[in-house]
């Protein structure tokens, strides 16, 4: 764990992205996965959607510098490509708030230290509209207390206990914690019939 990994609270301007079931092929088109590094992915986030819709939020100057992405239902479905949240992170996103997230995507976000908070559908709708009206107003993701504030409104949010723990203690890079199990890993392996030769 390190101090700069602690994610108790994320503060930043919002960028609302309406729509449901936005899959990771749309977040990061597959042709940009043809690289052995993640460098430059920030330039390709939502590239095809942005080309087909000039009013896409990621094209809009009013959202430049935003760091909290507000999304709908089942965001990040489909491919397990970490290039999608990695691209968002490199673009400047530091936290996500939405109606719901796909399971592999949320795991990838946590592994990058990006909190994903879930709100009631009507609260997501309200927040998207409020941010669109006032993009200069900062959103506060109170990760530790599981609430989101915007102006004078406080909205209850959900965050799985394990993710909450990893974010507020700065242990979302899981390698260290997994290594601490030491030889217990080999002991479990040796007991498995398919490893011991049945």
């Amino acid at each position: 764990m390190s101090q700069d990994h602690i994610r108790r609270q994320i503060v930043g301007r919002g960028i609302p992205l309406p729509g449901h079931d936005i899959d990771t092929d749309r977040i990061m088109p597959a042709r940009y996965l043809k690289s052995v590094t993640f460098q430059g992915l920030e330039g390709h986030v939502f590239e095809d959607d942005r080309r087909q819709a000039s009013d896409h939020p990621f094209n809009h100057p009013r959202y430049h510098g935003a760091s909290i992405l507000v999304v709908g239902r089942n965001f990040g479905s489909g491919s397990s490509r970490e290039h999608a949240p990695e691209g968002l992170r490199r673009w400047g996103i530091r936290g996500l708030v939405g109606e719901s997230f796909a399971e592999i995507f949320i795991g990838n976000c946590i592994a990058l230290g990006l909190p994903c908070l879930t709100l009631a559908p009507e609260d997501v709708t309200w927040l998207m509209e409020a941010v669109a009206r006032n993009p200069e107003q900062e959103i506060v993701l109170h990760v530790e207390h599981r609430v989101v504030t915007f102006g004078d409104r406080t909205i209850p949010a959900r965050l799985a206990d394990a993710h909450h723990h990893q974010l507020v203690t700065g242990t979302w890079n899981a390698t260290g914690a997994l290594l601490e199990a030491g030889e217990a890993i080999e002991r479990v392996a040796r007991k498995l019939p398919y490893i011991s030769g049945y």
Partner: peptide, 28 residues
């Protein structure tokens, strides 16, 4: 059968008996 321990986060540390990799998600 694959549980190693409970992690501080409350999650299960689960052992994986087979890891398959390919060229796209492994270089990094």
């Amino acid at each position: 059968a694959h549980t190693v321990r409970t992690l501080p986060s409350g999650q299960t540390q689960l052992f994986f008996g087979l890891h398959l990799i390919h060229e796209v998600t492994s270089p990094q």
